[in-house]
Design a protein around this nucleic acid. Structure first.
Lengths: 246, 246
DNA sequence: CAGTGGTCTAGACCACCGC
DNA sequence: CGGTGGTCTAGACCACTGA
């Protein structure tokens, strides 16, 4: 098969290398859902490893829902699930597009500064660290659906200073340019402050869903985002199985 | 070692049986965090399986964070994380207890009925299915923190008709008595209806976090719960890694 | 029927780390 | 040093299912 760009990076255990080699084109969108992945025998031969090692990598990808495996028919790229979108992607523009609505974005603030005490706490960096401050309002069908307050550590993503964010959202840009290894979400309800209410065109004190996300690359904080949506504009859905299963 | 009640249930692949056998006492709280789990060699001998099979079970438990493994020192029960509580347990009384507060529970409604159209939709059963309706208010330190509206399919859990719920919460009872294989959460913000506001002693229209949970055993719906908490009373936290890792 | 994945085995070498 | 887990191999048998 030409065009199969799966290569091992030589970093870490073989089964993790194989897993990454296959996960990479799937997550990047290069392999469309339904595309067939080489069989275990083919991968054995290609990488010169035993079948157990290949199986371990593929079984793990199947456990995460990135691929689906069926006897006889083989392994194929799985359709992205809403669950994965919730806990992995967090790209509001993609979510809006998936819902079939048109997405618009307004950049309300963009400035570099040294982190204040409060910002440093949020981003988990020392006070005075250079940061990029962003404030954006995302709309679907003309109605505001999410206010994005974001801090980005300039040290973790220096190239972000060249980006104007006229068409691409900061979350998307970061996903594309800065690999992350760890993320933390916190989810809560809150009443809209006057400023947030103004931007979202809702009454002050109206119920909002607030998601805060931090990401790291190793021990290095990358970004802090607070995403505020009016009640009803966003529902997070997750599917789970008992810890003893799977 | 006396008192190690790990037994295989003979259901499904060996590595899953071993995984369940170890996960069960951990999730039930019978094995305290830090407790040492038998080494791979001991488990090999006890169950008469190969080391690969034991390793597969333990590696999987480690991946979920139920145990921690260290070379030489062995495998121990991990401390429960807030993340696990959010996505697995959902036992409000345990969460309150962990936070060091006293938990109280008031049963406001308990009746059996045939599911109305709306209830049938929520529980994903046909209209007219026998259900148990429950309404409870959970308090911490005397202040209401969560209103629980719950439907239980009588067919899936007939023994629940004998339970009065004076000391044990329905969620806890179900976890203890009805094994589930699949759960779905949805999370959103909403404004308190007059009735909910009354029970939670907040103003009508105040912001609330609403979590809806459905569980199944195979294809059989077990329960639907809507858990409403005042803004600020509850924050859900999750930690994640990229889909290509781990 | 034949291709595919699901599982399991018996054994091996290695890295880590407490004693 | 020796116990522990981390990884990998080569091979085996089986279950499922599409052609």
């Amino acid at each position: 098969m030409p065009g199969t760009d799966i290569v091992l990076d030589g970093d870490g255990p073989l089964h993790q290398q194989i897993r990454r080699a296959i996960a990479r084109p799937i997550l990047a969108g290069a392999w469309a859902p339904g595309r067939r992945i080489p069989s275990e025998h083919e991968l054995m031969a290609r990488f010169g490893v035993s079948r157990m090692t290949v199986n371990r990598a593929l079984a793990s990808l199947a456990g995460e829902g990135l691929v689906e495996r069926k006897r006889k028919s083989g392994t194929v790229v799985a359709a992205p699930s809403a669950e994965r979108a919730v806990f992995e992607i967090w790209d509001i523009s993609a979510e809006i597009a998936r819902a079939g609505a048109t997405h618009a974005m307004r950049l309300l603030l963009r400035e570099t500064a040294e982190a204040t005490q409060v910002e440093a706490d949020r981003l988990r960096v020392p006070t005075g660290t250079p940061v990029l401050r962003l404030l954006l309002c995302h709309s679907a069908k003309g109605a505001p659906v999410q206010l994005e307050e974001r801090l980005v550590s300039v040290r973790a993503a220096p190239a972000i200073l060249d980006e104007r964010f006229e068409t691409i959202a900061p979350g998307r840009w970061l996903l594309d340019h800065v690999p992350w290894t760890e993320a933390e979400h916190s989810i809560r309800a809150a009443e809209a402050s006057p400023e947030i209410a103004h931007h979202l065109r809702i009454g002050p004190g109206a119920a909002c869903l607030v998601v805060e996300r931090r990401t790291w690359r190793g021990d290095e904080p990358i970004t802090f985002a607070r995403l505020t949506s009016p009640a009803g504009a966003q529902v997070l859905i997750g599917r789970f199985r008992p810890a003893g299963e799977r």
